[in-house]
Simulated scan of single mutants.
Amino acid sequence: MSASSALQDLLRFLIQEAKLPLSLALSKIPLLQKSSLSTPEQIAKAKPADLLPIIEDEKQRKQLLAAAKRVVKKRAAGEDAHGAESPSKKRKRGEASLFEVKAEQTPEELEAGLALPDGAAAEEELQEKVLFTNRAPLVLAMTVTLLKYTMPEQPLSSRLSLAQAYVSLTSRARAVSLGIEKDSAEAEGWGEGLAEVEVMGKRIRVLRRWGYEAKTDQPVESEAGVKTEDDPAAVKQEDEVDEAQQEEPALWGLDLEALKKSKTETINVLKAQSATTANIPIHTPQSARAYLFKSFDSPPSTASGKKPTAVAKAAEKAQNLGMLLQTIEILFQSWLVAITPQELEKRIWGWYVQVRPDVEHGVAGWGGKNELKLGKILALRRAADG
């Protein structure tokens, strides 16, 4: 097995099997490799003391060991008579995408695998932080965070899908106005008659996920953003979310452009509203999540030196994403003490316009990248006496 394949296998194991956050997994890979703990088999044989210098959190250490032993047991059951994994199983396992949803995943496993990084930087660090990105992923990050407040009944998988649908719709409209693309599928009537929700003033065509329930033991966040299980207001909010889930099903954001290309008749989509998503193109949460993780780089450096490894670069981008999401949360929560989520929604685009990366006008600036200063986002916070 090549070093690259071994690295991908280890990263996949840490994220999908051990359920470690991506940023944490990326930061621990070099330490695991240095300690000759690069495979589930090696980790399963390790003693807890061997992992202590690598994984400080006791719960995560136990999680890692349990996952390694579980994987080893599964592989042993799939071995052939000579004790080797069959070529077909090995090939299928190797071909699995890092962000792929396994068919046997439960809703809880799906949602856990889509978790986004939590930033824990000091405000002084956020004030000085500068990222390097283009505009679309910033819209995606702001929208997926907003939907947590405007559509709290929707699981993270749905919020990612709906946010990506919004970004696709706005990007397509912009491309049409610049003459880069022809009329959008929406404008040509491909969404006619389909269920829809409104996100920041735009109609998003959706597919209802009837019967999808993802229960979680995580406490809800209070108004101040502190997770609590004892706060009566938080418990009330959780009850309201449960009631909303009973009334409104989880949703997928439909990919109308893909629907148009596939020439799937709208009537088939309408039938699928109460049946199955088979062959109906949606904006997958995995692609939206992967887009977020790869889009927020650090500004280019002119200093000469050793080029960072792919793992180090991915870890850096994951950390940058966490800091951006933390900054957006701080902005939103500063306003939510005084206005409703629906009122907040009306302000998002204006804020985006004020902080988005500067690029050339027109076609020349399409997809262009530039600096995104988190300090400019923090400057939009509601004044304490406002």
Rank of each mutant, 00 (worst) to 15 (best):
162 L>E: 00
228 T>N: 12
287 S>F: 15
354 Q>K: 15
303 A>H: 08
169 L>A: 07
13 F>Y: 01
215 K>S: 14
64 L>A: 05
219 P>Q: 03
356 R>F: 01
221 E>F: 14
327 T>P: 01
184 S>Q: 04
368 G>V: 00
287 S>I: 15
39 T>A: 08
367 G>R: 06
275 A>E: 15
329 E>R: 14
87 P>W: 01
147 L>W: 03
348 I>K: 07
190 W>R: 05
101 V>W: 06
80 D>H: 09
351 W>Y: 14
232 P>T: 02
70 R>P: 02
33 Q>D: 10
287 S>C: 14
250 A>I: 06
171 S>E: 14
166 Y>E: 05
96 A>E: 13
272 A>E: 02
77 A>M: 13
192 E>S: 06
10 L>R: 09
103 A>K: 11
108 E>W: 14
94 G>A: 02
43 I>D: 03
294 K>D: 13
375 G>M: 08
19 K>T: 13
91 R>K: 07
377 I>W: 03
175 A>F: 05
37 L>K: 01
239 D>G: 04
348 I>F: 02
177 S>P: 07
159 R>Y: 06
232 P>G: 01
300 P>F: 04
264 T>E: 10
369 K>Y: 08
24 L>D: 14
341 P>Y: 01
368 G>C: 00
44 A>C: 06
204 I>E: 05
183 D>N: 12
167 V>F: 00
139 V>L: 12
304 S>M: 11
291 Y>A: 13
335 W>E: 07
206 V>N: 00
222 S>D: 15
284 T>M: 08
253 G>A: 04
10 L>E: 08
162 L>I: 01
56 E>M: 10
95 E>I: 15
319 Q>D: 15
24 L>R: 11
110 L>C: 07
46 A>C: 05
383 A>N: 14
246 Q>V: 09
281 P>F: 03
234 A>P: 02
146 L>E: 04
34 K>C: 13
322 G>W: 08
68 A>T: 03
240 E>T: 10
96 A>W: 05
305 G>L: 05
196 E>H: 02
57 D>R: 13
334 S>A: 12
332 F>V: 00
48 P>Y: 13
335 W>V: 01
5 S>D: 13
270 L>V: 04
158 S>E: 05
260 K>T: 02
61 R>E: 05
340 T>Y: 04
205 R>N: 07
